[in-house]
């Protein structure tokens, strides 16, 4: 242990330099000049307050094209400026992406959800970020200014780290809404009932055959049990081609618990997180079965 720092940095937001670009090119200029993209700011301002950086911010509130939120052919586009609150209060979106709404409703508090954005959640790339597993099961792709779109799974690289190139920015995320005979759900384990970070989390999307019980396709994603939210492909595949049974669910849960890669920290140990994954997979599937019964 060195004695590099003389003191603990006092918690204090530095005076920030703020820019108001009105179109994307201008925004990118600011980003190249060292500014960070400011959308909701709930993570960024905390970072600045606790670490003193960043000090330059380019706010996207005046860039209209970054506030798109619309559906076309089951694909939903969510712009960088869209708050979690906007997603939650949109009834069509709630039907199209229940897992994402489940997750969004667990982030922070009403106040925070009115400020924080879905893309902010993606950029923070926290292993415990609630919306990330849910986005993964909804086949999310992110779109950056350099105009290529990237699978979310490839975009998330490590805690706090994404594939975003220096000088590039995230414009929007697109995700696939549910089709007929599909349902999705997200659960997490926390110690408190609200205002908490996931200790482990699971999102699942199941597609049923027309018989209403055979699984046609499945996607499972896990949170807080690896450096990034991750897809559990083998676990998902194990469900396909048969109806859900106690045994198939247990088998799927076991596979998910095996392939995840949790760490131990002060919130929980690695083996406890594995256990949680096993339990949560079963719980989420049960919840999906309940939701299926509610389908029209």
């Amino acid at each position: 242990m060195g004695s590099s720092a003389s003191t603990i940095r006092p918690t204090q937001l530095p005076d920030l330099e703020l820019f108001w670009p009105t179109h994307i090119d201008e925004l990118i200029e600011h980003i190249k000049g060292g500014a960070k993209l400011l959308a909701g700011g709930t993570d960024l301002l905390l970072q600045a307050r606790n670490q003193g950086q960043p000090q330059k911010l380019a706010w996207i509130g005046n860039i209209e094209s970054m506030h798109n939120f619309a559906e076309q052919d089951e694909q939903w586009q969510v712009g960088a400026g869209i708050s979690l609150g906007k997603l939650i209060s949109n009834a069509a979106f709630r039907r199209a992406a229940p897992a994402i709404v489940d997750a969004a409703q667990l982030v922070g508090s009403v106040q925070i959800r009115n400020q924080a954005t879905l893309l902010g959640n993606i950029c923070s790339a926290s292993p415990a970020g609630d919306t990330l597993p849910a986005l993964l099961v909804h086949e999310a792709e992110v779109e950056t200014a350099k105009s290529h779109s990237l699978l979310l799974d490839d975009f998330l690289i490590a805690p706090g780290q994404t594939a975003l190139a220096p000088g590039d920015i995230l414009l929007s995320v697109s995700l696939r809404g549910l089709r007929a005979n599909e349902i999705s759900c997200y659960y997490r384990h926390t110690e408190r009932k609200a205002l908490d970070l996931a200790v482990a989390s699971v999102a699942i999307r199941l597609s049923f055959e027309d018989d209403g019980c055979t699984i046609a396709a499945a996607r499972i994603a896990l949170g807080a049990v690896g450096p990034t939210a991750m897809l559990a492909k083998q676990a998902a595949e194990s469900l396909v081609g048969q109806p859900l049974t106690k045994k198939s669910i247990a088998n799927c849960a076991t596979i998910a618990a095996e392939i995840c890669n949790p760490i131990s920290d002060f919130r929980a140990s690695a083996d406890y997180r594995r256990l949680l994954i096993r339990v949560l997979v079963g719980d989420v599937i049960n919840q999906i079965e309940k939701r299926v019964q509610l389908l029209p």
């Binding site: 110690e191 408190r192 009932k193």
Partner: peptide, 14 residues
């Protein structure tokens, strides 16, 4: 855990 997020005092929901 120097804050309300990680030092979990009960919330309204609890």
């Amino acid at each position: 855990n120097p804050g309300y997020l990680d030092n979990r005092v009960p919330t309204f929901a609890d």
